[in-house]
Design a binder for these strands. Sequence first.
DNA 1: CACTTATTGAAAATGATTTTCATTATCAAA
DNA 2: TTTGATAATGAAAATCATTTTCAATAAGTG
Lengths: 140, 140
Amino acid sequence: MAADQWLTQLQENGYRLTEARRIVVEAVEKSARALTPIEVYDIARKKYRALGLVTVYRTLEKLEELHLIQRVHQPLGCQAFISAGEGHQHLLLCQNCGQVAFFEGDDLDVLTESIAQKTGYQISEHWLQLFGLCANCRAD
Amino acid sequence: MAADQWLTQLQENGYRLTEARRIVVEAVEKSARALTPIEVYDIARKKYRALGLVTVYRTLEKLEELHLIQRVHQPLGCQAFISAGEGHQHLLLCQNCGQVAFFEGDDLDVLTESIAQKTGYQISEHWLQLFGLCANCRAD
DNA sequence: CACTTATTGAAAATGATTTTCATTATCAAA
DNA sequence: TTTGATAATGAAAATCATTTTCAATAAGTG
């Protein structure tokens, strides 16, 4: 999904289109790795000097609310965000450069069914995330 | 693994055994759900009034370093800790009461192999976590 | 173009965590 | 045992991320 569509989404949900939002959206949507609010701020401010960090926080909040971005949980912290991708997707993170690959096709039904049996839980959701090295970092 | 063994682990790694550590270890080890530092503090202080919150933070830090506890990532926050369990385990969290069940037997090799092929990544680790309702909460 | 009100950035407030530091307690060695 | 070096403690201060407040500004409707 392209930056324009994120802006349209914002607009269709009653939010105004502002320069600050355009720049923040662009920075996050373009990034191949998860960005923290400060990182978004630093990147975005190169194109829009007057941008405030608070506005970054507020824009990320709205993008998350509209399911356009998601928070990424990592061993070193959980402040970064990346595009939510489309449909039911999971993340594969490069431990060296942070590059994120999306994947679907996780068929965990057999596993969850068996765990449900053993534990007595009714399972309704799962989080799956893979870590490794991307092709580039692997080569080094 | 029992509280005593955690204390032994601390000792064997050069840490002194103190009343504060005993109480914190007991609180965390006994808990069926993940506890935040403040929650540990509140529980532990019932048995040891003089305990400081800073000591809770410092003790949790050491327990994590020794792989006796692990941080639990949840939609609402990632500050809570629970026993690390034994060997390669994953968590199943009750979305109502927070009760945690451990499970192993996740055979993701087929999946990771296929993802590795598609993405070019070399996959070395995975996070898997299930959410649902425990038997008790399910009944309500 | 005018007007309503959502949005903005700065500053202050909050909440979680870490650091500093003087005091106290653990534990190894005498 | 008692002693002594020093690790551990709690309180207060410092730091860091995030949220709230508020007056000024800008978006978009009429």
